[in-house]
Design a protein around this nucleic acid. Sequence first.
RNA 1: GCGACCGUAGCUCAGCUGGUAGAGCACUCGGUUGUGGUCCGAGUUGUCGCGGGUUCAAGCCCCGUCGGUCGCCCCA
Length: 438
Amino acid sequence: MSENIKRIYKPKAISGFPEWLPEERLVEQKWFDHIRRVFESYGFCSIETPSVEEIDVLLAKGEVDKEIYALERLHKDEHDKGESRLALHFDQTVPLARYVAQHFNELTFPFKRYQMQRVWRGERPQMGRMREFYQCDIDVIHVDNLPISFDAEVAAIMYEVLEGLNIGRAQLRINNRKILTGLLETMNIRDITPVTRAVDKLEKIGDFLVIAELRQAGLNEAQSQKVLNLAQQKGTAADIKRISCENATMTQGAEELVYVLDHLAHLPAHGVIADLSIVRGLDYYTGTVYETKLLDVPEFTGSVCSGGRYDDLAGSYINKHLPGVGISLGFSRLFDVIRQTRPELMGIGPKGPAEILMVIPDENKRALASETARTLRRRGFKVEMYHAAQKIKKQLEYASKKLIPFVWFPPFEDGKPHEVKNMSTGEQITSTPETWKA
RNA sequence: GCGACCGUAGCUCAGCUGGUAGAGCACUCGGUUGUGGUCCGAGUUGUCGCGGGUUCAAGCCCCGUCGGUCGCCCCA
């Protein structure tokens, strides 16, 4: 204590690694609970995989352009030469593929699982884009053949999730990649990735620039126009049926898309739309693809919930044919976007879970206050004790600040009744801990 | 990874053409005895991101650096 220079390490947020205040966290937990409930109501089971995978596993799909955080010990010994072997996963699809391959014999197919974990991407943060964030994934994996009806089911599940979060209207935009790949087949175009990336930007950059990008990708004038015309198609199942298909792949894609739309007919009209410009940059999708827009948050144009069907998920890890379909809800993105743009929708309130604050009238009544709290807890109430026998004013101030809805006064003198104060109305009644009801 | 802009109290910010820092909110205490949210009074809070340069003098000007925000890329 001879040093009177106290060094303060100034706390700062690490950009892209969000953390919330207790009142925000409470809402976040509510959202997680809701999502879990919906997923489970469709029979999906929960799994959790480690935060890290072997780098080779993460890169097996060839996603080299992903910004991956590698894991390294500060005190490496001589045996750990060079490269680190482990890295944080950047999504939950790759870990799922590894998991399914590894536990293949112990799983029952179709394997329907949900997973709500953090993922990490080393990108530059922006609104709705973080370096550490939660994703809530549902996927269905089957052996050899996965019914197309699952493509509709996972979409319906996510719609139900979004609908229950009170975030305004959400819109699923659905496409089937086979329509575009079929068209590209007729043009003998092999490298489809630059084309899909260009098409995917249609809404953002407009017809003219899409054409420019397509030309750059090697398509000629007529081909570019044709691809653009296709990408501009959007609407209902009836609209998709009118598209003229030039080969079997296109026809199959259109039929699958119509099937999926037909099986989502129970959703409100604004909730689902076919949009042929949605093709997704990721190259492992082979059929249905999804994106989700927040219709009532026009200032955020990104997708909060995306996914699709992949013909062969785990081919890099096991010699089986395992088709799958899944959607990933960008939980932290959604939460943060709503928090920043529509805070009133989040219902931010109490700074803790307590329903009742137990006042301690004076030191002699501490045991009585404790006992009263225990009785109420046994009856299912969340009760927080005030621990210092301070002025009642202080104790009420505390309850008020934390937005605890009720304050309980044990009798100040023996023989007197308990009293309960409703903090929002100010009303105070006599009651007993054994019978009180909110 | 590339480009634009921005770094002053815990937070939001003010600080004129350079003269060694201020407001609101928050926080603490008080306005007597067992009752909050309003009001009133008092008080605490800063290496002005960091390093260098110009100057008698730098929060302000110059260079560098780190951090942040937004856009691009990519994506949840």
